[in-house]
Simulated scan of single mutants.
Amino acid sequence: MGSIEVGTASWTDKTLLASGWYPASADTPEKRLAYYAEQFPVVEVDSTYYGPPAEQTTRLWAQRTPGGFTFNIKAFSMLTGHPTKVSAIYKDLRPETDKKNVYPGDMPPQSYEEVWSRFLAALDPLAEAGKLGAVLFQFPPWFGIRKSNKEYLLEVAARCKPLRPVFEFRNASWFEGANQNETLDFLRAHGLAFVGVDMPQGHKSSIPPVMAATSDLAVVRFHGHSDKWTSKDIHEKFGYEYSDEELRSWAPRLRELASSATRTQVFMNNCYSDYAQRNATTLIDLIREG
């Protein structure tokens, strides 16, 4: 069985800071990151979806964590085809428009290419320190299974090389009927890493909890089962605490997944209060029991 690393999708959420999970002595961003890194071997950075990181920031992350610690970085929204706030784009690359949100097609081609270059370059300090795990590309609900989208997955992999992209879908067409095998076979054929999810079902963005290793790296993200999944309030959307029984049922599935991969990463994305941190700790214990 390959290694299993469990962490969370945030260490800076305001509700986490207010929960009391951090000791009083962890009273600065530097100390909080150091404390988090003592508890977990990996973290996912979600903030980079909303705005690309600065190289100075990623260098500090590398400096403030111990050897062997890993950061996964969520790709900037512009790179996954999501609507992106003009104010989130690099100042000198912002298109002249009255729109608040833009898509890749609204950007001049050279500016779009520069967004890619700057985003990936900002990750260099983590890569050089051996602390960059993967770059998460979470696609929007309208990114369904079709030839052009498969080609885009290959384009992303080529752009990111030698960095490792991992792919999360939010459109059920990738898994309907025979499409599930087609999707997983395509990813395996090209050595692309699939991100399995646990999430509320019955919504336009719902994906079944398929667990599969399509490369040497397997990734699973736990989004919770909030009955307010469609809320625009992210704390309502992700404010779900897994029970011990739920996590216990997942432990053998994660061990089985890890038997098909060299490395398996698991992220609790139910980031409200200290739900994710406590659930991650419980899950670690349950996996070790097995």
Rank of each mutant, 00 (worst) to 15 (best):
G2C: 06
E5A: 15
T8K: 05
S10T: 15
W11Y: 14
K14Y: 01
T15R: 07
L16N: 00
A18Q: 10
S19T: 11
W21G: 09
K31S: 08
A34V: 05
Y35P: 06
Y35S: 03
V42I: 15
E44H: 06
G51P: 00
P52I: 05
A54D: 14
E55V: 11
E55R: 14
T57V: 13
T58N: 01
R59K: 13
A62S: 14
R64V: 00
P66K: 07
T70A: 14
I73H: 00
I73A: 10
K74W: 04
S77T: 12
S77Q: 15
S77I: 00
M78I: 15
S87L: 08
A88R: 08
A88M: 06
I89N: 02
Y90T: 02
Y90L: 03
K91L: 12
K91T: 11
L93N: 11
R94V: 12
R94D: 04
E96I: 11
D98I: 02
K99H: 03
K99S: 10
N101Y: 10
N101W: 06
P104I: 09
G105V: 00
P109N: 11
Q110V: 13
S111E: 15
Y112P: 10
Y112N: 05
E113T: 03
S117Q: 14
S117Y: 05
S117I: 01
A121V: 05
L123M: 13
L123S: 12
G130C: 10
K131T: 03
L132S: 08
Q138M: 02
Q138R: 00
F139D: 12
P140A: 07
P141D: 09
W142S: 14
F143G: 03
G144F: 01
I145L: 14
K147R: 15
S148I: 08
L153G: 06
L153C: 04
E155R: 09
R159M: 08
C160E: 01
K161C: 11
K161Y: 15
P162I: 09
P162R: 04
P162T: 07
L163I: 03
R164Q: 13
P165Q: 05
F167W: 04
F169Q: 14
A172E: 11
S173A: 07
W174F: 12
F175H: 09
E176F: 00
G177D: 03
G177L: 04
N181M: 04
T183D: 04
F186Q: 06
L192T: 08
D198I: 04
P200V: 09
G202R: 07
G202Q: 10
H203T: 05
K204V: 15
P208C: 11
P209D: 14
M211C: 02
S215G: 08
D216M: 00
V220E: 03
V220P: 10
R221H: 04
F222K: 06
F222E: 02
H223N: 03
G224Q: 00
H225C: 09
D227W: 00
D227H: 05
K228C: 08
T230Q: 05
I234M: 10
E236F: 07
F238H: 14
Y242S: 13
S243R: 13
S243H: 09
E245M: 02
R253A: 12
R253L: 15
L254H: 04
E256M: 04
A258L: 10
S260D: 15
R263W: 06
R263D: 13
T264S: 08
Q265M: 07
V266L: 13
Y272W: 13
D274A: 11
A276L: 12
R278Q: 12
T282D: 05
D285T: 06
I287G: 12
E289F: 01
G290S: 04
